[in-house]
């Protein structure tokens, strides 16, 4: 790791500073907050994305009138440029003139400062991110369900297993490899999320929605003074986290194949 001030960047004479930059990053007051926010943001996001995606996949798989069309409509969020969907969410959640508060207000709920209160800002960006992630989970899990032979389910229902039991004892276990890869990819992608949070809150108010990725982005581009060293150090921490989970996934896969 070199001391990459912009002057050094242009002149190409960065001074080698070893792990000082990492020490600086870990010692920063922002670090614990960012780490915690990253953990909450990532875990809550992928958990709900996955659950919603799975429920919807099962629901659409059961086949009914218009199911194909409706399922395709679910992909629309993905077609929207991120700046548009994130701005739209920020718009809907706006404290004074947002539609969400307007609806809640009709039920007598007082104004909630979704994006501008440290208590709810993280929740708000998570909700938007879950919304963005549902199509991805739905597509993979649906195609996973398609690959589960219909006879298995039929056999189970002949045995008199109810739909609920049938799902947990047959479908879900068979879906495990697909689930694993979905969750892993979800994790990798969610760790990297910058745009949604940045457009909605720029990591604020204060640092209440600052994740590691946002922090890295802010150091590099969010101020008038690009500083790439801490940005790169934080970025590397992120890659490290993703790698750990990647290894974990392979380990599990290996054990499963062995059994």
């Amino acid at each position: 790791m070199h001391d990459y001030t912009i002057r050094a960047f242009v002149q190409g004479n960065a001074e080698f500073v070893g792990f000082d930059k990492y020490a600086e990053v870990f010692g920063s007051t922002t670090f614990p907050t960012a780490l915690l926010n990253t953990a909450v943001f990532t875990l809550v996001s992928i958990l709900f994305q996955y659950a919603a995606g799975l429920a919807l996949a099962v629901f659409f798989r059961s086949g009914f009138r218009l199911s194909g069309v409706l399922r395709a409509m679910f992909l629309v969020p993905w077609l929207l440029p991120l700046i548009v969907s994130a701005s739209t969410w920020a718009w809907m959640l706006s404290s004074e003139n947002g539609i969400v508060n307007s609806v809640l207000g009709a039920f007598g709920v007082p104004q909630i400062n979704w994006l501008t209160s440290p208590d709810t800002a993280l929740l708000s960006v998570i909700v938007a991110n879950i919304w963005l992630g549902i199509p991805f989970n739905l597509v993979i899990l649906y195609s996973g369900l398609q690959n589960i032979p219909g006879e298995l389910a039929e056999a189970a229902s002949l045995d008199g297993a109810g739909a609920w039991k049938q799902f947990w004892s047959i479908t879900f276990p068979l879906l495990r490899p697909v689930s694993a890869i979905t969750l892993l990819l979800g994790l990798i992608y969610t760790l990297k999320v910058v745009d949604v949070i940045w457009v909605m809150t720029t990591g604020g108010p204060g640092n209440s929605t600052t994740t590691l990725a946002i922090w890295s982005y802010r150091e590099a581009f969010g101020t008038g003074q690009p500083d790439f060293s801490p940005a790169a150090a934080v970025g590397n921490v992120l890659i490290l986290i993703a790698l750990v989970f990647g290894f974990l996934h392979l380990q599990l896969q290996h054990r499963q194949e062995g059994s």
Binding site: F59, F64, L66, M73, V76, P77, S85, T88, I99, W131
Partner: peptide, 19 residues
């Protein structure tokens, strides 16, 4: 189920409507 599906889709696409 179709009705429920339409409802879910409407909920999901609300931000798109807002746009």
């Amino acid at each position: 189920k179709t009705a429920l599906g339409v409802f879910f889709t409407a909920l999901m696409l609300f931000p798109a409507y807002w746009m």
